[in-house]
Amino acid sequence: MKEYATKEGTFSYLKQFPKYSRDFYRFDGDVFVSSLGLGTFRKEPYREENYIVNYKDAVKTAVLNGINLIDTAINYRYQTSEREIGEALKELFSEGSAVREQLVVTSKAGFLPLDFPFPENPYQWIEDHVLTPGLATKEEVIVDQHCITPAYLRWSVEQSLKNLQLETIDVFFLHNPEMQLGYVEYKTLKKRIKKAFELFEKLVEEGKIRHYGIASWNGFLYDESHTEYLSLKDMVAIAEEVGGKGHHFKYIQSPYNIAKTEARSYSNQKGPDGRYYTLMQAAHGYGLKMMGSSSLLQTNIFKSRFDPKVGELLGTSDLNDLASALQFARMGHVVSALFGAVDPQHVEDNLMLAYLPNSKPDNVAKLFGTNDAV
């Protein structure tokens, strides 16, 4: 039995749901992934209600009903999200309801996670857990919250594995490295990313991660003149320098939703031929796989009702705006669109989309009104 997602394991998983549309699962070249993935980010993690709520039931409901991608990060809710996923997976495995090879589990590191309960003095936590053990110097910790030194990242991976109660993380993301720009030069950041990638290649060899990538908020979406712009071409070049053509930099994660469409509509990234493409097109050109984050823009896209034409074009007229938003998000060039849900009922409601086929590409393109949509 493998301790990570496999092609055979994920295929056996999808065969449990024969009533779902054949479009619901996608083969990304390595494994089969549900086109909706469960995310575990919560806004304002210092608020007490974010700890009273238990994600465990939502995770179990997702896995039992056809979602095999679970996404998290060590800093989400001060490590609580990872720990609840770990509890849920342990129960599923012990019950025989799922096996490790069927599930794709991703996490991230870069932000300092602190710990729950929130420390009385977070600066002392940084001193005790990062600076004193020598994981980083004070200068390598950006605004008391972000760090990507190899020693710190190794600690993060080890801690995430412990939290998740797993031996291997399928995809491990460097979390928002653009956070450091404005405090260090781009040239310096590239050197830091190179050291991070060197560590990740070692962690692949050690069996602690299977693949790695970069999860970014706006870094891949800005114009290249912006201070926090990240060049995908540069990131691939670093990976090839570190790991050769057989490197394990395989994924990126970036926002894509009906209100934030730049990943599909804005040509700001150079492809392998040096010409400018959208992020989705460039990623495809480099052989990378993209996971779409913030599919519902943290529910901010529902401040007013959608135009009825949206549902007509996406084939979701009989459902609601939330279903239309998720349908749109998973119709990009993504292996999966991530959504957050604490209530198991919300997970089940969103899975109504599993019965729907993909929207027609021409219909999706009409929602853009430009020639840039892929």
Rank of each mutant, 00 (worst) to 15 (best):
I85P: 04
E87N: 07
E87W: 04
K90D: 05
L92K: 08
E95L: 13
G96E: 05
G96P: 08
A98N: 07
V99Y: 10
L103G: 02
L103W: 06
V104G: 02
V104F: 13
V104I: 13
V105S: 02
V105L: 12
V105Y: 03
K108A: 14
D115I: 15
D115M: 06
F116W: 15
F118W: 13
Y123C: 01
Q124V: 13
Q124I: 09
Q124F: 06
W125L: 00
I126K: 15
D128Q: 04
L131W: 11
P133E: 05
P133S: 09
E140C: 12
E140Q: 14
I142G: 05
V143M: 04
V143D: 14
D144C: 02
I148T: 00
T149F: 00
A151W: 00
A151L: 09
A151D: 12
Y152Q: 08
Y152C: 08
Y152K: 04
R154P: 10
R154K: 15
S156Q: 11
V157C: 06
E158G: 04
Q159H: 13
S160M: 08
S160T: 15
L164P: 01
T168K: 05
T168N: 14
D170I: 10
V171T: 14
V171F: 03
F173E: 10
N176I: 10
N176C: 06
P177Y: 04
P177V: 06
E178C: 01
L181Y: 02
Y183W: 12
Y183H: 13
Y183E: 07
V184N: 06
E185D: 11
E185P: 02
L189F: 03
L189Y: 01
K191F: 10
I193V: 15
F197I: 00
E201Q: 07
E201K: 00
L203K: 04
V204L: 05
E205S: 12
G207F: 10
I209C: 11
I209P: 10
H211L: 07
Y212A: 00
G213N: 01
G213F: 00
G213T: 00
G213P: 01
A215W: 02
W217K: 11
N218F: 04
F220S: 14
F220E: 12
L221W: 02
Y222L: 14
E224L: 01
S225Q: 09
T227W: 05
T227E: 05
T227A: 03
L232A: 15
